[in-house]
Every structure is written in structure tokens, then in C-alpha cells.
């Protein structure tokens, strides 16, 4: 097998909640439970899809080295990420770069936006001298379609959300990492600018061979961007495979529910039936202690689903599903 660019092997992450005075009252929540998936070492976009609370952001933070897994390991180019970061953080971040959800909170409001780019040019030693730094910044901004003369020298609050998020893309273009970890990158920008942002991610892949782990709740954009899709449900991978197969022929009941619930932007294709409101959310926010994580909401759940956790099984080429039905 070819070496993967990124591989998660049985990664779990627990959080302790509550506590206060009595340590006994502490509860442990498994935000991520034995997650395994990989991305091939070629220009590639994987979409990691899950609802809120499914552990998407926890995975992003672990890949970026902001959190350590409780068990299991994350490999980048075959090497353990946490060890790599301890050894040489700059070297790892030259390879793997984040784009975060909130384009408002990543800027320091007291500094001009130029500083964001100047810092990374210094840190990654991309240029020598002021003029070269300036040239690099201008070139990268123009590639993204931002006007340097309008934006440079301004403060973060003077930029719109869309401009801020695209300014972050300039950063990517300067660093030229191998992998972008983008956590809900478009949820805070306007519809008309989203499309432009997605085009940039695609052109990064095609022109600059930059791969992307696109983390989102939105299957529309995932199906537009991604080569393959990983579906996360309450901290476990329930299904993954090539994009078209997942969209056209979802196997796991959870994936089926997700896909049938996406509003189609066409008034001629409306939902055929009303969804049962009592079953769409469970009061216990966290997954079942035993058995399949989706068993509480699954229309096909049997006794077996409540007692035994289904493992990911290979179904055909590159396609995996964790469900007792298969």
C-alpha cells in the first residue's frame, strides 16, 4: 500500500467534565472514539462531515497538535504527529496549516493585518529583507483576488468577514503547505463569497498540489469539493468512501438520513414526507453507552445494535461502513 499523507489510527480523545469539589462526580466523555481514516499522498480533498457535537473540531485540533489523543496515533507522512511537533514544530507547521471557522477571532485587533503575513514570512524564513517580504505579500494577495492597495495597512475591524477569510488564504499561499486543515471555513462568510472561497481551495489542490481536510456539517459543499467523504456520528466514523458513492448510494442509516434531509435548492425537488419531530433529537445528548452510537435514533435498530458496537467493515473498494446491516 502507498504511504498515506495523513492517517488516523484508532484515535480516541476523552474529556473530563464536571468535577468541582468531589472528584468522584467527574464524568468522562469520549468525544472521539476509535476513529480511523486516511488521506492518500497526492492532491486530494477529504471532507469530514458531522453534526454539531460529533467531534469534528476535536479531530482538527488533534491533527494540528493542539490536543493530544488519549489513545491511538495520528501519522503524517508515516510519522507520529505529536513527536514531530515536539521535535520541530515549525517544520510540521510548514507542512500542515489550519484555516479556522471564525475569521474574526484570529486577528489581533491592535495590529494591522499586514502583521499576520509578516510574522509567517519571518517565522518560515520565506524572504530576506523588507522589499522581498512586501513583494511576496502583494503577489500572494493578487493571486487570491484581493487588492493589496486597499487592504494592506488596515486593521482587522475594517475588513469584512469574507475579506478576512480570504486574507487567510493568502497566508496559505505564502506558506504552501502540503495539507490544509479547514474547520468550517465558510460558515461565517456570505453566500456569494462562499463560492469564490471554494474555488480557491480547489485551485490550491489542482495548481499547487495542496491537499485539504475539509471539515463541515454541509454535504452540499462537501460534494462539490471533496474526492472522498468521511461521515462522523457522535465521535465515531460510521461510513466513508468516494464522494459519488456516498452521495448516490449511502449505506449507513445515519448517512441516509443526513442526505435526505439536506434542503435541495430547487422548489421542484421538495422533501416528500414530513420528518418525525419527536425522533430527530435525543434528550441524552451523548451517545449510547453500549452498542451502535446511532441506535437511539435509527429506524432499523435491533437488539444487536443496542448491545454490540458495529466495527467499520470494508464494502467494495475504498468503501467502509460500520453497521450491523452489512
Amino acid at each position: 500500500m502507498d504511504q498515506s499523507l495523513l492517517e488516523l489510527r484508532n484515535v480516541s480523545r476523552e474529556f473530563r467534565i464536571g468535577g468541582g469539589l468531589g472528584l468522584l462526580s467527574r464524568k468522562i466523555i469520549k468525544a472521539i472514539d476509535a476513529v480511523s481514516f486516511s488521506m492518500p499522498d497526492k492532491p486530494w480533498i477529504t471532507a469530514l462531515i458531522g453534526e454539531s457535537g460529533s467531534g469534528k473540531t476535536t479531530i482538527a485540533r488533534m491533527i494540528l497538535g493542539l490536543l493530544e489523543p488519549t489513545s491511538g496515533e495520528i501519522l503524517y507522512k508515516g510519522k507520529n504527529v505529536n513527536e514531530w511537533i515536539k521535535r520541530n514544530k515549525i517544520e510540521y507547521l510548514k507542512e500542515v496549516q489550519p484555516i479556522f471557522q471564525d475569521p474574526y477571532s484570529i486577528y489581533n485587533p491592535f495590529y494591522k493585518i499586514d502583521r499576520v503575513l509578516e510574522i509567517i514570512i519571518k517565522k518560515f524564513k520565506l524572504a530576506s529583507g523588507r522589499d522581498e517580504t512586501r513583494d511576496l505579500i502583494v503577489k500572494a494577495m493578487e493571486d487570491i483576488g484581493l487588492r493589496p492597495e486597499d487592504l494592506l495597512g488596515r486593521y482587522p475591524h475594517q475588513l469584512s468577514g469574507g475579506e478576512r477569510q480570504r486574507f487567510m488564504l493568502t497566508r496559505i499561499l505564502l506558506i504552501r503547505p502540503k495539507l490544509i486543515v479547514a474547520d468550517e471555513p465558510i460558515s461565517m462568510i456570505d453566500v456569494s463569497l462562499r463560492a469564490i472561497f471554494l474555488e480557491h481551495l480547489l485551485s490550491f489542490k489542482e495548481k499547487h498540489s495542496i491537499s485539504c481536510l475539509y471539515i463541515s456539517h454541509d454535504l452540499h459543499t462537501a460534494s462539490y469539493l471533496a474526492d472522498n467523504i468521511v461521515i462522523l456520528c457522535y465521535g465515531r466514523v460510521v461510513e466513508d468512501g468516494p464522494k459519488d458513492q456516498i452521495i448516490e448510494n449511502p449505506l449507513h442509516p445515519y448517512t441516509k438520513l443526513l442526505i435526505s434531509s439536506i434542503p435541495v435548492p430547487d422548489p421542484k425537488v421538495r422533501w416528500a414526507e414530513r420528518i418525525d419531530l419527536t425522533s430527530i433529537e435525543s434528550i441524552k445528548k451523548f451517545r449510547a453507552e453500549k452498542g451502535c452510537v446511532f441506535s437511539g435514533r435509527c429506524p432499523n435498530a435491533t437488539e444487536n445494535c443496542l448491545s454490540e458496537t458495529p466495527q467499520l467493515k470494508n464494502i467494495g473498494s475504498n468503501r467502509r461502513v460500520a453497521c450491523h446491516l452489512y
Binding site: 469574507g162 453566500v191 454535504l219 462539490y224 452521495i247
Partner: peptide
């Protein structure tokens, strides 16, 4: 027109944003 062509959806191969800012 721009708003409608900017909606990404399943099966759509091409989306297009509206240039410029509000």
C-alpha cells in the same frame, strides 16, 4: 441570478460567486 448560481448543491459541477463586496 448571481445568488442562485452561487448555491453549491449536490450534483452541481460549477458554482460561481458574485465578485465585489456588499
Amino acid at each position: 441570478k448571481g445568488l442562485i448560481s452561487a448555491i453549491p448543491s449536490i450534483g452541481k459541477r460549477y458554482v460561481k460567486g458574485i465578485p465585489g463586496l456588499a
